[in-house]
Computed example of a mutant assay.
Amino acid sequence: MSIPQFDWEACINLMLQAMQGAQLGLLRLLSWLHLARDIDGQPAWPFALRLSGEVLLIDHNVVRALVSALGCLVAALLLLALAVAWRRRRWLLLGLAVALVLLAPWPDQALLTTAATPTSFHTSPERFSAAGIVRGEQLYRQQCIACHGADGRGNTPLGLSLEVAPPNLSSGLLWRRFDGDLYWSLRHGKGGMPAFEASTSPADRWALLDYLKANAAGVGVTDTGSWPRPVALPDMALDCRASTVTRLDQWQGQRIRLVIGGTAPLPSEDPRLQSVLLGGQASGAVGAIACASHEATALRAIAILTGVPEERLAGTELLADRDGWLRARNSSGQWSQQDMLCRSPLASGSPVAQVAQVGGSGLDQLIAAMDEEPVRFIKGGFVH
């Protein structure tokens, strides 16, 4: 009989969620008590240090030490409860409880990081949006492209001439750090990058971050054939027949299919999906699809996310799961498992392969696979 292995990934997920909840809860409490100052409309982390979930992802020895220490803490609490009930051995039990806490293998300073950025927990006031991506692209081309380059890798003559070369923005950097940390770098500058506090508004800085994420996704899917890290389907305005829905964001918790209009006939509505036509006629939704987006920025935003020029997007379909993550792309009209371009980096097993045994069309299998394999995405050391 095989001995089941301990699921460290599941353990790390629980720890990260607990750390996130504790710190955000404390920040909200301090804000409510007016003990945390606001920066650009959001409460800022007021302490010099914060818990660092990133360490748990890098070093499993820290995870083991933390699990052992928490186990000792639980045992000490049980001994304290027993001491209250058993008076004859109270001092012995109290001594054992204190010894357990003192001798527990706490990870010392490993779980602490300097909160040099008071906006560590800041998040964009609006959801990742098509308008934000395109506005960010305009700002990037005006103020950033000379150093960082069109692909974000920083391999430009000006960038390489700096004392500290620009970071590779198409790598995992944007996903390893908090949005608030990135926002703080834009606001105050970092290394050879000047501060943008005087030349940009808070909305512009969030738009720049929207674009950086979208551009990194487009560069990644062009280089590797898949989105290296999860990326959301951007919010956009909708025109729907016989519906009060006016924005994509209103369909939270539902699967979404985005269809780029072209010369080919449009697919029919699918009751399992909320379908949106992009690039259709200028007045209202058309054909078999009841909702369309005529937002001027939407097609450009999708081109950036997919790394495909706008003129070559016609006939492309994109699928987003119930959590809003882009998962699959197809341009042939015949879906297959090869169209799944985003799988959870923390998922265990191969749900896609298991679903294939069930049968059904390629689209049936993709929908089942998205539901079976949700994206457990870690951002800045915290699960989203």
Score class of each variant (00 low, 15 high):
Arg205Lys: 13
Arg205Asn: 13
Arg205Gln: 14
Trp206Asn: 15
Trp206Gly: 15
Trp206Ser: 15
Ala207Ser: 15
Ala207Pro: 04
Ala207Cys: 11
Ala207Met: 11
Ala207Gly: 10
Leu209His: 02
Asp210Gln: 08
Asp210Glu: 09
Tyr211Val: 05
Tyr211Asp: 05
Tyr211Met: 06
Leu212Ala: 13
Lys213Tyr: 13
Lys213Thr: 05
Lys213Ala: 08
Ala214Lys: 09
Ala214Ile: 12
Asn215Asp: 08
Ala216Tyr: 11
Ala216Ile: 11
Ala217Lys: 05
Gly218Asp: 02
Val219Thr: 00
Val221Leu: 11
Val221Ala: 09
Thr222Trp: 06
Thr222Ile: 01
Asp223Arg: 03
Thr224Asp: 09
Gly225Leu: 06
Trp227His: 05
Trp227Cys: 07
Trp227Val: 08
Arg229Lys: 10
Arg229Asn: 11
Ala232Gln: 03
Pro234Val: 15
Pro234Glu: 14
Met236Gln: 12
Met236Asn: 08
Met236Cys: 14
Leu238Ser: 13
Leu238Gln: 13
Arg241Leu: 15
Ala242Gln: 06
Ser243Pro: 11
Thr244Asn: 01
Thr244Ile: 00
Val245Gln: 04
Thr246Arg: 01
Thr246Asn: 02
Arg247Glu: 13
Leu248Val: 10
Trp251Phe: 13
Trp251Tyr: 09
Trp251Val: 09
Gln252Cys: 04
Gln252Ile: 01
Gln252Lys: 07
Gly253Leu: 10
Arg255Lys: 00
Ile256Ala: 00
Leu258Lys: 02
Leu258Ile: 14
Val259Lys: 05
Val259Phe: 08
Val259Pro: 02
Ile260Pro: 08
Gly261Arg: 06
Gly261Asn: 06
Gly262Val: 06
Gly262His: 06
Thr263Val: 07
Thr263Asp: 12
Ala264Trp: 00
Ala264Leu: 07
Pro265Ile: 03
Leu266Asn: 10
Pro267Leu: 00
Pro267Tyr: 00
